[in-house]
Nucleic acid binder design. Structure first.
Lengths: 153, 153
DNA sequence: AATCGGCTCATACTTTCGGGTGATTTTACC
DNA sequence: GGTAAAATCACCCGAAAGTATGAGCCGATT
């Protein structure tokens, strides 16, 4: 009727069966071999140890591990992707953005040219276009404004 | 002799004592009230249940909690005033810091010279010293590094 | 008195940047 | 297939930035 019942409680049922069998076995053994007057203490101690172990095992198997949640502070990073709107508004092209990003890293025009596999002159052209679109006169200002506008990562 | 031993194993010792007392109590009870021929199964079952419970309890007590680290976002604006230590470490003087700050605003050497009422050459000297102390080659890199180190507001 | 660090300035030189102009080639789109 | 935007490159020139070196001044330290 409820097919999930067994699968959900199968471990419990299994352990119950084991316990029952163990009890039966114990009774069988006790009848045949034990003399209770002398060994009662050992017998009880053995059972106690056995079932303590069983309990521990059971608990470890069934109990969900406790979780301690540690909150770790990390700087918020909200910016990324706010740039596209501004980029479109200012009409800054992909290539220009690349140049701008390398400029922001402090690379010289020559370095940028090497990194982008273009000539120095091309980089200069891009840079000039960037300056015009950002309405600045120097690369340092361009970088500053770009960061303020969220154009850079 | 080993003072740590007790504190380290006190739970184990405690549970052992409990178990011993329980055994003694059981024996006392069995002598006085139980008739084993009829109630052996119940007796054993009782012990089994008791110590299973004890085992479970033990396990729950002793299991190490699992720690989960959750990253929590926090507004990233903690820096201001962290700078002095780095400034001292790098040996950047007051004047050099002034130049650095104006540089970070995108001002040219000439502008900086005017604003600080010194000559262009002086600004260049400061700039060169700054670059050396920050181990960079260009003003843009200097500004970047300075911001990363929290030297600027 | 001597030393040292910070600040100032200078000269001379090299490199990089930025402005202006023009041109060719890709790329994308109608 | 024509057009427009983007990307590429070139040349010139002046300005700015950076390098190297030396030097004078001043306050604090020893």
């Amino acid at each position: 009727m409820k097919p999930r019942f067994f699968s959900r409680h199968k471990e419990t049922i299994f352990y119950s069966l084991i316990m029952g069998i163990a009890l039966f076995a114990l009774r069988f053994l006790e009848i045949r071999f034990f003399v209770f007057d002398y060994t009662m203490e050992f017998f009880v101690a053995g059972i106690a140890l056995l079932f303590t172990a069983l309990g521990i095992w059971l608990a470890l198997k069934l109990v969900k591990p406790k979780t301690v949640i540690v909150e770790k502070m990390v700087p918020a990073k909200i910016d990324i992707e706010i740039n596209q709107a501004e980029l479109d508004r200012l009409g800054i092209s992909k290539r220009e953005l690349e140049v701008l990003q390398l400029m922001a890293k402090g690379h010289s025009n020559n370095e940028i040219a090497s990194e982008l596999f273009v000539s120095l002159n091309t980089v200069k052209t891009h840079a000039a276009n960037i300056f015009e679109k950002l309405e600045v006169a120097r690369r340092t200002q361009a970088v500053e404004k770009a960061k303020k506008l969220g154009l850079l990562a």
